[in-house]
Simulated assay, not measured.
Amino acid sequence: MNATFDFAGKTLLITGATGGIGRQTAELFHRSGANVILMDLDADRLESMRSEMAMRVVAVAGDASANEPIQTALRLGAESFGGGLDFVVPAAGIYPESSILDTGEELWRKVMSVNLDGVYRLLHAAIPHMNDGGSIVNFASVAGHRGSKNHGHYAASKGAILALTRSLAHELGPKLRVNAVSPGTIRTPMVESLVAARGSAMLSETPLARYGEATEVASVVAFLCSDAASFITGEALHVNGGLFMAG
């Protein structure tokens, strides 16, 4: 996929930057001219990614659900690029498999900490630095709409992201637009175990009869941030090959 956009002079802050979808999103924005502020827990992969991009990029290694790395990213972004933020994409997330009876307090809190609390902390800190006309794109999931067997913690966190997205669209308009992307089964390391266990069944329910690619999600994130989506806010765009069709 070779989608391109004009993001010259704009600045993106993205967490989960070295993940399958996060990386493709960051690289697409960078190719389209944006400055990028990368955040990820994996310091080695993050440094490799920063080095490959070479210019118009800063990187901060740390827990995306913790305040200190977020503040560091905001400071370095301001020092390097000035002008505030135009796009914020909280892409960090975890997807452990566990039935509700096997999900202890510690695992429940970990999933909520990364998938929900981390989004709150990032947006709470970043929104005051965002420019008029800016865009936030959150990551929900098909699981947040229809549930997911043995992933109740994940589905709950993504359902909350949908509600947060709509609420912020009300609060922050008309200055900012806030939308979400709801991927289905995308070919990334995060869903390898799901594909191994239930891949054939999911494909049989998917009209396009294949898994999605991270580049296909990245292009939708970029679309939602672009002027082509200037009258879209409070929405969740499904990128799942028809696995889930919202009524």
Score class of each variant (00 low, 15 high):
A43F: 11
G77R: 09
L168W: 12
G62I: 06
R56I: 00
I14L: 13
A229S: 10
G9K: 12
A73K: 06
P69A: 02
E192L: 12
V181F: 02
D6A: 14
V220Q: 05
L101P: 00
M202S: 06
R75T: 15
L38A: 03
A169N: 09
V111W: 12
Y120C: 09
S157K: 10
S80P: 06
A78C: 01
G133D: 11
V181G: 02
M53V: 00
L13P: 03
V114N: 03
K10E: 15
L76I: 06
Q24T: 08
G104F: 06
S182F: 03
T188Q: 04
F5K: 08
G234W: 04
H145K: 13
Y95T: 01
F81R: 14
M49T: 09
L12N: 08
Y211I: 08
I37G: 01
L123Y: 07
L162H: 02
L74K: 08
M130Y: 07
A214F: 10
I37S: 01
L12C: 05
G19N: 05
H153N: 14
L76K: 15
A125H: 14
A78W: 03
N131E: 11
T11W: 12
A160F: 11
L74S: 11
R187K: 13
I21D: 04
S135L: 08
S148E: 14
I14K: 03
L85E: 10
V195E: 10
P183G: 00
F231Q: 04
G147Y: 12
T215V: 04
G173S: 15
R56M: 10
A163E: 08
M202G: 03
V217H: 00
S32A: 03
Q24M: 03
T215S: 11
V36T: 02
F244L: 15
P128C: 13
A8E: 14
R166A: 08
M112I: 08
E68G: 01
T15A: 02
L243E: 09
P183T: 01
T15D: 06
P174T: 09
E68F: 00
E68C: 00
E213K: 13
V221T: 05
A3Q: 11
R75A: 15
A26V: 06
G212Q: 08
V57T: 11
A126P: 06
V220K: 00
K110M: 15
M55I: 12
L85D: 08
E79K: 14
T185F: 13
V111A: 11
S141V: 08
I232Y: 04
G82V: 09
H30G: 09
V221E: 02
A197P: 01
G93T: 06
A8Q: 13
D63W: 12
E97Y: 09
A156R: 07
E27I: 10
G247W: 12
I21V: 14
T103K: 10
A126F: 09
F244V: 15
A66S: 13
A155N: 05
A34G: 07
D132T: 14
A197Y: 01
A126T: 03
A73M: 03
R146P: 02
L85R: 05
E205D: 07
V195M: 15
H129C: 11
A73L: 04
D102C: 07
I14Y: 02
S230I: 05
D63K: 12
L116G: 03
H151E: 06
A43Q: 15
A54C: 05
